[in-house]
């Protein structure tokens, strides 16, 4: 059995160190070692995007990242989106637009949306659909999700000084 290693990184703005085996994915460590169970496991092969987290600001499937690769990186998970218990605009928009049913895909969609709006604050519907193509939802269809993203973008632009 390979020796466990210490990995030091930043998770949701906090410095964290954890022990992991080389074979453990970032998803396994987030859920089973760090108890950050908001990130969901779907297909475990990079198709569904349920496990999306931000690695140095870039959306990645955490099931396809080894935890040992994360030395020195900044990770953002769904737990870091709300601000002290107050929902972020994107979370509120998903609620308002009923953009979820079972909710397993939602954390992944929200993390992808965060990355999208950071890169492109005012995306077209086509850009939204293209950017979210790596996230699958088997309950709602995608229209409500796209509307939630559009609403988030609209509110952010309206709120900007």
């Amino acid at each position: 059995m390979s020796k466990k290693r210490i990995v030091t990184c930043t998770i949701n703005g906090r410095d964290e160190s954890f022990l992991c085996q080389p074979r453990q994915t970032l998803l396994e460590v987030l859920r089973d070692v760090l108890d950050l169970t908001g990130t969901k496991e779907g297909c475990s092969n990079g198709n569904c995007g349920a496990c999306t987290v931000l690695l140095n600001g870039a959306a990645v499937d955490s099931c396809l990242v080894l935890a040992v690769e994360c030395e020195g990186v900044e990770i953002e998970t769904i737990e870091g989106v709300a601000d002290h218990g107050r929902l972020a605009p994107v979370q509120q928009a998903f609620l308002t637009n009923a953009a979820l049913q079972c909710g397993i895909c939602t954390p992944g969609f929200i993390m992808s949306t965060q990355a999208l709006l950071h890169e492109n604050p005012n995306p077209t519907e086509e850009q939204i659909r293209f950017y979210l193509a790596g996230n699958l939802c088997r309950c709602t269809g995608y229209d409500k999700i796209v509307r939630a993203v559009q609403q988030t973008a609209d509110h952010k632009i309206a709120d900007a000084p």
Binding site: G46, G49, L55, A59, V60, V65, Y131
Partner: peptide, 9 residues
Amino acid sequence: IGGIQIQNR
């Protein structure tokens, strides 16, 4: 190639 998550890696 893939979605954004795949393209990032």
